[in-house]
Amino acid sequence: MTKTKILLATTASVATLALPAFAEELAAEELTIESTDLSTVVGGTTFKFYGQINQGILSYDDGLQSNTYFPVDNDNSGSRIGLETETNLGSGWTMGTRLEFGITPSSTSDVNIQDEHGDWSFDKTDIRHLEVSFGSDAYGTFSFGQGSMATDGITGADFSGTGVIAGAAVSDMAGGQLVRDTLGGFTGGKVSDHFDNMDGSRRFRARYDSANYNGFVFSGSYGQEVLSDGDSNDYYDVAARYSKDFGAYAFDAGLGYAWNGDDEEVLSGSAAVLHKDTGLSLAVAAGRTSADHSSTYGYVKAGYQQDWFKAGTTAFSLDYYEGSDVFEQGAGSRSVGLAVVQNFDKQNLEVYGGIREYKFDNASADYKDGTAIMGGLRWKF
């Protein structure tokens, strides 16, 4: 049996453990259906259909040639579609399920001068979530199936309001672009090879998230990669998060540690603060990983947002990334980005634009700098 079949069969089996309780509840009461937006309540179970479309236009100058890609999916927050359910099991416990697929044809993580259209095919790696969870306010949440490891999102603390186009994963705007050497050849890999925010991943895993203790939540997970071939490693991680308001200030932070069977270890985290009265925010992220060689990075982002227009908040940000030994030992990478986002609250729409410069340094080779300019919109439903 393949890993994918095991994923589907095991997750479905765990889900059926709670179905008798749901069926008994449904049989004992009159069937009721209510609709609120894209949510429907059937008996004691809420079904929520959701998703987002995030499309734009990308222009990339690799130091020798400039190309434009349209339409292109924004890998900062790719298009997706999903279905969530929540069932009240009684005694303070609920069961949840989540099925979510990425819909990212011609993504910024794929397109480049040699492949202007990316990969439009759908395969099993587009399964973002296929999981079941059981939780209570008192005891926390247990999750099983394809989904986020404990450290997924640990470097994403951010109050700037521009996360749809700018964040610690600075390569997301143009990750698939090829890096040229000074002679014009493509010897430097892709942009994404030079920039790593050392965030967690989604895998087939068992995960536990504690209850909230005065703003603190602790998590741990164990998982395997079942959607891609050739990876038989075991993955482990633990994380701690803290989020709380202090009067005029909001604070968010997280720290995570991950390791696998190849003796690769990753320590990463982030923190962000917002001054509500002025709309000013500051976010920082950093990480260190060890495998064939150790690599490190640091990231800082300043944000400003105001409600100048009735339609919704306008947000700006300026950020800077610096990495060491990410591409290979002796290599350096730097990036500066400027972003703006206009929200249209009634339409659940964000219109955004950004410009980012990528600089590549290497002890053994010289590479040309790159510049990405992107504009687009994200619509959530």
Rank of each mutant, 00 (worst) to 15 (best):
V111Q: 12
Y213E: 10
S133T: 00
Y235N: 05
G153I: 13
A206V: 14
A174R: 00
T278W: 07
E225T: 06
G312K: 00
N348L: 04
S39Y: 04
S243K: 10
I103L: 15
E265W: 04
F218Y: 11
A311D: 07
D209T: 09
S106V: 00
G153D: 09
A206H: 07
L377K: 05
G176L: 07
G256I: 01
Y304P: 03
A27G: 13
R205F: 10
Y352E: 03
A283F: 04
D245Q: 07
S228T: 13
A211E: 09
E322D: 11
V284D: 02
G140K: 03
L19R: 13
R203C: 10
F122P: 10
M149F: 08
K310W: 07
L130E: 14
E225M: 06
K301W: 02
A331C: 04
D319S: 15
E322N: 12
D126C: 06
D252E: 15
L349G: 14
G247C: 01
I154D: 09
K244Q: 12
V340E: 02
F309S: 06
I81Q: 05
S201K: 15
G215F: 03
V132N: 02
A271G: 13
G135M: 10
R205I: 07
V164Y: 03
L19P: 04
V111P: 13
F22V: 15
G298Y: 01
G156D: 11
R98I: 11
I6W: 10
L17D: 02
Y139P: 08
N214A: 11
G140C: 11
V340R: 01
D292S: 08
G188R: 05
T313K: 10
V300T: 10
G220C: 05
F70K: 08
G118K: 07
S59D: 03
N88I: 11
V14Y: 08
D262P: 10
Q146L: 05
F316V: 04
G175Y: 14
D172S: 14
A272T: 10
T313V: 04
V226Q: 02
R203P: 11
V72T: 11
Q146H: 04
Q224T: 12
S333P: 09
Q65S: 13
L183M: 15
G376Y: 01
G223I: 00
S210G: 12
S270Y: 01
D62M: 09
L227N: 03
Q306Y: 15
V266W: 02
F195N: 03
D110Q: 07
D231I: 14
T289Q: 13
G370D: 06
N197Q: 13
A302Y: 05
D123L: 03
A15T: 14
L338W: 01
L19G: 04
T87F: 06
E264K: 12
T2G: 04
T85R: 06
G330Y: 10
N88P: 09
L183H: 13
A253I: 09
K301Q: 14
P105A: 07
T296D: 15
S228E: 12
N348Y: 00
A372E: 00
A206G: 15
E131G: 01
T85Q: 08
G200T: 09
E350P: 02
E84G: 05
I373C: 00
Y139N: 15
G247T: 00
D209Y: 06
E29F: 13
S270Q: 02
D361C: 02
K380F: 05
D110K: 10
A9N: 07
S270K: 00
